[in-house]
């Protein structure tokens, strides 16, 4: 494993359900994310992107394969070890809907310092430590006293990002972090994510919005039916997609000037995909 790899996933298999209902959600997935790198994870609905994220966080057990986080092999971890790892805050997670990651009855300040209190930091010290983070996610200090319901969607998502950063994680996984936001807030959050790279944190950015991915990711990984079918630099994957599914995906994205690939082209790719 290269010295600067923060995440290394090797030949990961994941199954859901038991007996007759057992179904494979991930099939031999391998992925590496380095320090300060942002990897965009795109692909079909139901292809296993969120499952991969949940497996890395120990929320879903793997049936085969290895997951190494910041040099530590976590694949064999028991529940208790996972809890300890999560408490240390080495890996953090940001959901699409910030209301799900923020307690509606807890002020923004208390939400932000909670991960630090859990680690035994005193309240006063914790409050001092979160202040520079507010600046990084462009939030005004006066918001600290408010409840999540009193913030706009964009502000809430920035709080969720700040909260994920409090423990100085090596890796943050963001699952559709901007899809519930309007244009201005989306740009704001994406700008913040780009700036984060300079601090060395590694990001996995899951999104259906190829424009957002193109804007923040250094590399892109494409999932299709439980498999990782293509990885490459963002430019490679977008301008010269190799796998048929990736070609269909990129060709389906409308753009302001040229529109998506022609319908005949897409139909041909879809047919090729079915016979592949």
């Amino acid at each position: 494993m290269p010295a600067d790899a923060v995440l290394q996933v090797t030949d990961l298999d994941v199954h859901y359900g038991k007996g007759r209902r057992r179904a494979q959600a991930l099939d031999g997935v391998s992925l590496e994310v380095r320090r300060g790198e942002t990897v965009g994870l795109i692909g079909e609905t139901g292809s296993g992107k969120s499952t991969l994220a949940r497996t890395i966080l120990g929320l879903v057990p793997a049936s085969a394969g290895r997951v190494v986080i910041d040099g530590e092999e976590v694949s064999g971890y028991r529940q208790r070890q996972w809890r300890t790892l999560r408490r240390r805050g080495v890996v953090q997670y940001v959901f699409q809907d910030p209301l799900r990651s923020l307690d509606p009855d807890v002020t923004i300040a208390d939400s932000l310092i909670e991960p630090l209190l859990i680690r035994g930091v005193a309240r006063g010290e914790a409050l001092v430590r979160v202040r520079p983070l507010l600046e990084r996610v462009r939030l005004d200090e006066e918001l600290l006293a408010r409840l999540p319901g009193e913030l706009s969607g964009g502000q809430r998502q920035r709080v969720a990002v700040a909260r994920a950063l409090v423990t100085e994680p090596a890796l943050v996984i963001l699952d559709e972090p901007v899809s519930a936001l309007d244009s201005a807030n989306r740009v704001e959050v994406l700008e913040i994510l780009k700036e984060l790279r300079t601090s060395g944190v590694a990001l996995v950015f899951i999104s259906h919005d190829l424009g957002s991915v193109a804007g923040v990711a250094d590399r892109v990984a494409v999932m299709y039916q439980g498999r990782l079918v293509e990885t490459g630099t963002t430019r490679e994957v977008i301008t010269a997609p190799q796998h048929v599914y990736t070609r269909l995906l990129i060709g389906s994205a409308p753009t302001l000037r040229s529109g998506a690939a022609s319908r005949a082209d897409r139909d041909a790719l879809r047919a090729a995909l079915l016979t592949a």
């Binding site: 201005a184 989306r186 424009g211 193109a214 977008i238 753009t255 302001l256 040229s258 529109g259 022609s262």
Partner: peptide, 26 residues
């Protein structure tokens, strides 16, 4: 501007220019 800042256009159009003005089918 916000759309273009984070849009595929940046890559695709740069590529199209390089290919000698070849654009994607409309």
């Amino acid at each position: 501007a916000e759309h273009e800042q984070y849009g595929l256009e940046r890559y695709l159009e740069a590529e199209a220019d390089r290919d000698g003005g070849l654009t994607r089918a409309g």
